[in-house]
Design a protein around this nucleic acid. Structure first.
Length: 544
RNA sequence: UGGGGAUUGGCCAAGCGGUUAAGGCACUCGGCUCUGACCCGAGAAUUCGUCGGUUCGAUCCCGACAUCCCCUGCCA
């Protein structure tokens, strides 16, 4: 595991040293109302890594306290995503399993005179809450007798009331400068059936009340969440301090992950999915876990990125470059390489008279276990149009008239002539090859200025290649603009590519690297059509 | 004068009173190379938002100011 220092680790070390906690127990608590994205990967990685580092363990807990938004299918998909990432929770828990426990704790609050049933309308309640600079006013129901509250709360549970007609509230401080403490709602009425508990319940706990109790039940030592919950921590502590729990979990906040040009946030993704602007949650342009999987990213690359990116309380935006770097670093060791030509121009080797010759090609120089293969070489080849210039510019190191270049895994060829159409477009480049320069022969007499890639014309397979770029046009997402205006139409580009045949020695691949043009991976769903997803562009540093 | 956070090179981020102020990404230059990628070297903060204070000594402590983020859901 990579070690990256962060302030939460330091807190844990101190807590362990000072015997504030016996051990480390963490949890990842997604609400099953959508799929996970790379921002969640940060939370997942932090929780699992830290627990593991200190010999503790981590729960996967579905925070399913709102039946109106949650769905069983997300429970399943989220677990698959986490498993794919390589994390193993000690146990899968559901907040809905603790509903009875939470109810009991709410009764404790009522009995202590710290909670009351209020039938103030949502509108009036908002008005009574005051503003950021003015205190709120107390509800007329605030001092309702305990017995009456107990009776009303029981009837709320029994389903006697309409949604929105009544809530259970904590009696804290309507003048608190922290809005969260102005008598927050503890339970609300919801008649919608819950995907797990069905219609057993008609009241559901609010996040602020439920979460600390969930953490208590699981004996979470460090409850990690994002920065926007800092204002909720006093309430978290209030509930813990007043519900007679014998274990006190504590909340710590860290900054969420933001990446330039990426849309994160379930709300936005849900909107993109619902508006049909993308394929779905697993659209490769999205940085959802399933989208990244389809794009060809591997878990290790993603996790390394997260680990190197750090944990702090700084509202930061990481450059997409950083993600690309770690994905590329991971893929370069694992991706079999093939050769492909995106914009082909024909090369005729005028002195070739051997038919088709199969030449060995290293599949992956860094990882020999991926095996070698053979590829055809013949009289007619295709090379990349941009790899040829009739008159070379300075610093141009590829093929040009009168000059020699190495064909990777093949021979040196020298361009002698070009055939053009009436408009001057190059149709063919006539070259001669030198038999002595065959790849692997150990020929060292001279070195060409450059090496280029190619495919043999008669065997090349034509394929459609999809390049998936970044979803957004602008560097940063602007919440005030409609999403459809911000999506970059170039985020999906379709190319026709000529790819070397998969014939000899080829195995079912799931990832490829295209020389110079980038790393691509096959989307397993589209293997038959040979549709590729670009993983990461490999920039060329050549500039005329 | 509501409250809560944050402020270290273009982007992340270590650092916890005495350091030449880690590291990664990006960028530049050089080397290597069966692609210019990869790999290997080298390069940037006289300085840690600003101004004061404490101290023999401050990025690290205190104060003021500035800027950014969060908080008025019966969402999480």
């Amino acid at each position: 595991m990579k070690e990256s220092s962060n302030f939460i680790r330091n807190i844990m070390i101190d807590d362990l040293d000072n015997k504030v906690v016996d051990g480390i127990v963490t949890r990842f608590p997604p609400e099953p109302n959508g799929l996970l994205h790379i921002g969640h990967v940060k939370a997942i990685t932090i929780n699992f890594d830290l627990a593991k580092e200190f010999g503790g363990y981590t729960y996967l807990r579905f925070d399913d306290t709102n039946p109106e938004k949650e769905d069983e299918r997300f429970v399943k998909l989220i677990q698959e995503d986490i498993k794919w990432l390589g994390f193993e929770p000690v146990e899968v828990r559901y907040a809905s399993d603790y509903f009875e426990e939470m109810y009991e704790r709410a009764v404790i609050l009522i009995k202590k005179g710290l909670a009351y049933v209020d039938d103030t309308s949502p509108e009036d309640m908002r008005a009574q809450r005051g503003t950021l600079t003015e205190p709120g006013t107390e509800s007329p129901r605030r001092n309702r007798p305990i017995e009456e509250n107990l009776d009303l709360f029981e009837r709320m549970r029994a389903g006697e009331f309409e949604e929105g007609s009544v809530v259970l509230r904590a009696k804290i401080d309507m003048a608190s400068p922290n809005m969260n403490l102005r008598d927050p709602v503890i339970y609300r009425i919801v008649h919608e059936p819950h995907y797990r508990t069905g219609d057993k319940w008609h009241i559901y706990p609010m996040y602020d009340f439920a979460h600390p109790l969930e953490d208590y039940v699981e004996r979470i030592s460090h409850s990690l969440c994002s920065l926007e919950f800092e204002n909720n921590r006093p309430l978290y502590d209030w509930y813990i301090d007043n519900t007679d729990v014998e274990f006190k979990p504590r909340q710590f906040e860290f900054a969420k992950l933001n990446i330039t040009g990426a849309i994160l946030g379930k709300r936005n993704i849900i909107k993109l999915v619902e508006d049909g602007l993308i394929d779905g949650w697993d659209d490769p342009r999205l940085l959802t876990i399933s989208g990244m999987r389809r794009r060809g990213y591997r878990p290790e690359g993603i996790k390394n990125f997260i680990r190197e990116t750090g944990v702090s309380k700084e509202n930061s935006i990481v450059e997409f470059h950083m993600l690309e770097h770690f994905i590329r670093e991971d893929l370069k060791l694992a991706a079999p390489r093939i050769m492909a030509v995106l914009d082909p121009v024909k090369v005729v080797i005028t002195n070739w008279d051997k038919g088709v010759e199969w030449v060995p090609a290293e599949n992956n120089i860094e990882n020999p276990e991926l095996g070698d293969r053979e590829m055809p070489f013949g009289r007619e080849l295709y090379i990349e149009r941009e790899d040829f210039m009739e008159v070379p510019e300075k610093r141009f190191r590829r093929l040009s008239l009168g000059n020699e270049v190495r064909l990777k895994y093949g021979y040196f060829i020298k361009a002698n002539d070009v055939v053009k159409d009436e408009e001057g477009n190059i149709l063919e480049i006539h070259c001669t090859y030198d038999p002595a320069t065959k790849s692997g022969s150990g020929f060292e007499e001279r070195k060409p200025k450059g090496t280029i890639h190619w495919v043999e014309a008669s065997h090349a397979v034509e394929a459609k290649v999809l390049r998936y770029g970044q979803l957004l046009k602008e560097e940063n997402y602007d919440a005030d603009l409609p999403l459809e205006e911000q999506i970059d139409p170039q985020s999906v580009q379709e190319f026709r590519a000529l790819i070397e045949p998969f014939a000899k020695g080829s195995k079912p691949f799931d990832r490829y690297q295209f020389y110079r043009h980038g790393y691509f991976s096959v989307d397993p769903k589209h293997t038959e059509e040979l549709t590729f997803n670009e993983v990461v562009p490999m920039k060329s540093s050549y500039r005329p």
